[in-house]
């Protein structure tokens, strides 16, 4: 099992150039759990993740790992504890899958060393977890999007960090692959105890897979906790500006958000049996157009 760490952000402010995006967030990442950061587009969830993963230097506030400022920890040492899969990693041309996964071993290697036995073991284990063993000697250019994403995660796994950050690991993937990737990450957490922190776009998948939710609005943390306690139609209204009704996911029992658009409301007939959707009636007639505040790219609206 992976080691337990305390990872905390204290009044963190960060952004780009002269634009502040994260407006002062304090949080503590639950160790050995899956945390998901949710929020509307441009709310700063990705910036927050990048700041936590030391890709962006906070303009104020502090981020500490086991009580130590992360920018004071030597980069290679930190890279053995904390890994990150960026949103759109860059694929070097013509490289084989095993060699790419092996690059995740960098923080464990010295200047001149070749691959040690440990390196091979870590690469093999990462590839087995992500179920890409048979692709080992294939060229990465030949893979599909879903396979590539598994290769990238395998590279992050080969790094063998206790904490793994993932920036929208399921974007651009078909729903099948989204679920598959999230299942694999859950395996990783349950079997190895890896602390996972990710940004996800899909709030329903988030509430299903997360142990802990961080909900952001305009660069501020507005709610956090277990999905079943945090995810309510008020919260959805608050962070996405969209009316919805929250029901129980028939599969997982976790909260499931059903958006209320301006169309498609089921006509209310007195004979209709009491269904979980019925509370909708009170709001649907004057529901505002949600699409204007939430870009339609959001998967919540497209399902």
């Amino acid at each position: 099992m992976k080691a337990t760490h305390t990872f905390q952000a204290e009044q963190t402010v960060s952004g780009y150039e002269n634009k502040t995006i994260v407006q002062g967030i304090s949080l503590s990442i639950p160790s050995n759990k899956i945390s998901v950061i949710i929020g509307a587009n441009a709310c700063g969830k990705s910036t927050l993740l990048k700041t936590l993963a030391r890709l962006i230097k906070p303009t104020s506030g502090s981020i500490t790992l086991d009580g130590k400022q992360i920018d004071k920890i030597p980069p290679k040492q930190l890279a053995r504890v904390l890994g990150l899969l960026p949103q759109s990693p860059i694929v070097p041309e013509g490289i084989s899958v095993a060699d790419l996964v092996g690059r995740g071993r960098f923080p464990h290697q010295t200047l001149f060393s070749g691959w040690s036995k440990k390196d091979y073991e870590a690469v093999a284990e990462a590839m087995e977890i992500m179920k890409i063993t048979e692709l080992a000697n294939q060229n990465i250019d030949e893979l599909s999007g879903g396979q590539r994403q598994r290769v990238w995660i395998a590279m992050a796994l080969a790094q063998q960090t206790d904490i793994l950050f993932l920036d929208e690991p399921t974007t651009f993937l078909d729903i099948t692959y989204q679920v598959e990737i999230l299942d694999l990450l859950t395996d990783l957490n349950r079997k190895h105890g890896t602390t996972i922190v990710m940004v996800l776009h899909d709030i329903n998948l988030s509430s299903r897979y997360a142990d802990h939710i961080f909900a952001l609005r305009k660069g501020l943390l507005v709610a956090e906790g277990e999905p079943s306690k945090v995810i309510t139609s008020e919260l959805v209204k608050d962070i996405f500006g969209m009316d919805s009704t929250v029901i129980q996911d028939p599969v997982s029992g976790t909260p499931l958000i059903v958006p209320i658009g301006r169309h498609h409301a089921k006509p209310v007939t007195p004979a209709a049996p009491a269904s979980p959707v019925s509370p909708v009636t009170s709001v649907n007639s004057e529901a505002p157009a949600p699409a204007s505040s939430t870009p339609s790219k959001d998967p919540v609206l497209t399902y």
Binding site: L84, P86, Q159
Partner: peptide, 23 residues
């Protein structure tokens, strides 16, 4: 030549390189 390994990590882009511990 000695920085060859670092170069191969830089090739993965700024974000991956930073999170792999390359300055």
């Amino acid at each position: 030549i000695m920085l060859g390994k670092h170069l191969s990590i830089l090739e993965l882009g700024e974000q991956s390189a930073t999170s792999l511990g390359v300055n």
